[in-house]
């Protein structure tokens, strides 16, 4: 067993366990902690795939910034007892969730089977793959337009949230 496989198995298992714990835990703050652990283990998987830059960005943006806001909101709302109340309201979603879940499982199985049967091409990675410089030059030369469109979208979202959150009594 190679070191890569060992990392994949431990971190994959950690990701699966924490992901199910997010759904199953009744305490919302615990769910947030599990989600952070899940995002962290996925970052380690990226690192094992030699995508350094993506791994660090995963930790900084998802685990570090977005989840802190989640935690903040959950702590402020104080959701004790909210889980039981929500169960009745979510009844209609259950069949749809089951159908979508089955579809996802089918896709994963098909994808895995296809991976084993098809003879894959060269698995070697280019020099400098996943480094900050490589990701940056791809982003700013190859994918300039999607990058700019995404930033405009995010800017619009920021402006929109500021407009919505502004106090009414101020002119």
């Amino acid at each position: 067993m190679t070191a890569e496989l060992a990392v994949f198995i431990t971190m994959g298992a950690a990701a699966a366990v924490t992901a199910s714990a997010v759904v199953l835990s009744k305490n919302t703050v615990h769910a947030v902690i599990y989600l952070v652990m899940n995002l962290f283990s996925i970052a380690v998987l990226y690192l094992a795939l030699s995508a350094q830059m993506v791994a660090f960005l995963q930790i900084i943006i998802y685990a570090g910034a977005i989840m802190v806001l989640f935690l903040f909101t959950v702590m402020m709302l104080n959701m004790t007892g909210a889980v039981e109340a929500a169960e009745d309201r979510l009844l209609k979603q259950k069949p749809l969730a089951a159908a979508l879940g089955l579809m996802l499982i089918a896709e994963v199985v098909m994808g895995t089977v296809g991976l084993f049967s098809k003879p894959s091409g060269s698995m070697a990675i280019e020099d400098g793959f996943g480094s900050a410089g490589e990701v940056g030059s791809r982003l700013f030369f190859g994918y300039m337009l999607p990058f700019e469109v995404t930033s405009i979208l995010l800017l619009a979202a920021i402006v929109g949230s500021v407009v919505l959150a502004r106090k009414k009594d101020e002119e």
Partner: peptide
């Protein structure tokens, strides 16, 4: 490669 990103990542945690 991206040493400073590691510092920022951990300080954000």
């Amino acid at each position: 490669d991206a040493g400073i990103l590691l510092v920022i990542a951990f300080s954000s945690l």
